[in-house]
Nucleic acid binder design. Structure first.
Lengths: 344, 344
DNA sequence: CGGTAATATGTGATCGTTCACATATTGTCA
DNA sequence: TGACAATATGTGAACGATCACATATTACCG
């Protein structure tokens, strides 16, 4: 093994001819260090390629400069973007991010993830996973007095939450279709154990109800293009009439487009589609996709800011921070050709 | 602040009525612990919600159970997938991953990233970024005796490298087009400061040269659909004749498809397109995209295995591990209608 | 020149673990 | 029953940094 024993603060002190405490002062930029000592210590650090050990520092300081993240579904666009932004933002605040990705939303996995992060003595925690089934009391017992920010999850009483308003997003999409004159509007949603999906369903329903319109169809799929393709193919073959379609992410919308093309539908004349997320490819689909833009970088930024507030003022009451998504109109939506149409 | 002082091994020992060392033995599953002591310690751990401090453990053990990753461009599909897989794999080997994402490939950033990870005393390092301009001697000086695995980078003498064979991948794509009878084949590549892009260019060129065919065009873009759209639009407007197009990732291919549709090209009759990566959406594009499949999960798996080997046998000479990508034929490629065609 | 403050440096204890070693207890067999 | 091994437990030092405090040096002002 490489038992080469890494250089320590003492090695540097010895070489510079000062005490270890002086070296510590140089590292931490304490003002009371003479110019001579400073130079000699810096020279020694360079020469010995000294790097202070975070572990030792954390132990002594009783804080880790680490932020824990519990993430879910990071292979999907939204979570992946958020996580990447989170990492960048954290680095700018000179925090290190420690990410644990859970593969399901069971209490067992969530609690194991929290334990892992508590061992690392993270200074704060961002839970970036839908937690529909978790009891608040259970969470309280594991998180203890760790500062936590939730996102993508249902409102937690007394807990800090930063989220993009999915309800409003879906409503914007549905309203756009309604304003164009669509009367038969279907929803292709993601899995309902994602809280985001639940909220989008509610927003869509709310818009339709307010307009006095009955939903044409309410489908659930798995966020993938394949799933979207499958569901819309089935819907078309079932003969259910619809002219407007709200899809809960752009990948499924892509699959839906394919299904519609295969069934010789003309787009957007025959069916208008609104996606969700505004992935970079959306503007280049056939036809370019009208969609609900979500600012994941802003979500990351805000949740980190909120976590910082939690860490600095642990007793401050935290409120809900909400980001509003934006409707991006492209050419996949238009006025319906006929007020009503069935199977082609 | 929450100066509540977390519970330590001593608190557990006191409650269980044993010495701290016995508690340590329980934590580390040492065999020589009596059944009674074991039970009492476990009870105390439960009751006090004790979690051992990783920082203290690492300090004492002189190893961190952390693996550092230096990543680049994680907002793109390939890197994002690899990173996510890496995290999952590392967790399975009960390592923690510490990721630093660099925003450019300057020596300054790479070396800062390595310093950050050295401070964390990572046990090993996976450099998952193209390092075309970095001198080997510079790297040697920073990495010192840290076990390192490179990937997505040019072969390093004496260093461990795991990579997907991009040269072969591009050649497979080009050969497919050649076998269909295409004579005018263009390449739409990613930025050439990615080593992957460079290798794909070489593989494509090599296949064409072997067939005695001159390249129709050699374009460089930025991996995005927007970039691909722009470049292919320009190519079409320039009137350069081509019937086959190899694109270095599927997002750019998506943009290229859009450009071709807009110019009223019939696909695949007028132009055959081969993508790269096989993103989940590829099968649902218009038309479904023939592409080169890359197994990013396997890449992550292999590089971690190799790193483990490096860590366990530091003096073992490491070789180059290569994964071979696979051609997935869908309907975006067919025989050329005419042996030659210019601007439409 | 004495006194007080500001600056510069050093010493011992501490953070929460593990390791090496010492010691106490139990078991097994001649 | 005595001897020796195996099992079980405890003690002090170490890991590499920071903190609180003590001390030495320099600076300034009346």
């Amino acid at each position: 093994m490489q038992k080469a024993k890494l250089t320590t603060i003492n090695d540097v002190a010895a070489r510079a001819g000062v005490s270890y405490q002086t070296v510590s002062r140089v590292i931490n930029q304490h003002p009371s260090v003479s110019k001579q000592a400073l130079e000699r210590v810096q020279e020694a650090i360079q020469a010995l390629k000294y790097q202070p050990s975070n572990a030792a520092r954390h132990l002594a300081k009783q804080q880790s400069a680490m932020i824990g993240v519990i993430s879910y579904g990071t292979l999907h666009y939204g979570p992946a973007q958020t996580l990447a932004s989170l990492e960048r933002e954290a680095h700018e605040l000179s925090y290190t991010l420690s990410n644990v990705n859970v593969t399901d939303l069971s209490f067992a996995q969530i609690s194991a993830a929290i334990q892992t992060l508590r061992r690392q003595r993270v200074d704060g925690l961002i839970i970036f996973a839908p937690l529909i089934d978790i009891e608040h009391t259970d969470l309280e017992s594991i998180c203890a007095d760790l500062p936590v920010v939730f996102t993508a999850t249902e409102p937690q009483p007394k807990r800090a939450v930063t989220a993009i308003d999915q309800f409003t997003g879906a409503r914007l999409g549905a309203q756009h279709l309604l304003q164009l004159g669509h009367q038969h509007i279907a929803l292709l949603n993601g899995p309902l154990d994602w809280y985001d999906a639940l909220l989008r369903q509610q927003g869509w329903l709310s818009a339709l109800q307010r307009a006095g319109i009955t939903p044409a169809a309410d489908l659930e799929s798995d966020w993938t293009a394949a799933g979207g393709y499958q569901q819309i193919s089935a819907l078309l073959e079932s003969g259910t009439p619809f002219t407007g379609l709200l899809v809960a992410n752009d990948q499924m919308a892509l699959g839906a487009l394919r299904a519609l093309h295969q069934h010789n539908y003309k787009l957007p004349e025959d069916v208008s589609i609104v996606g969700f997320d505004d992935i970079p490819e959306s503007a280049f689909l056939e036809p370019p996709l009208t969609t609900i833009h979500q600012d994941f970088a802003a979500l990351a930024h805000q949740s980190l800011l909120q976590l910082k507030a939690c860490m600095e003022h642990p007793n401050l009451k935290q409120h809900l921070r909400v980001l509003i998504p934006e409707l991006i109109i492209r050419s996949s939506t238009t006025t319906p050709k006929q007020p009503f149409r069935g199977k082609k």
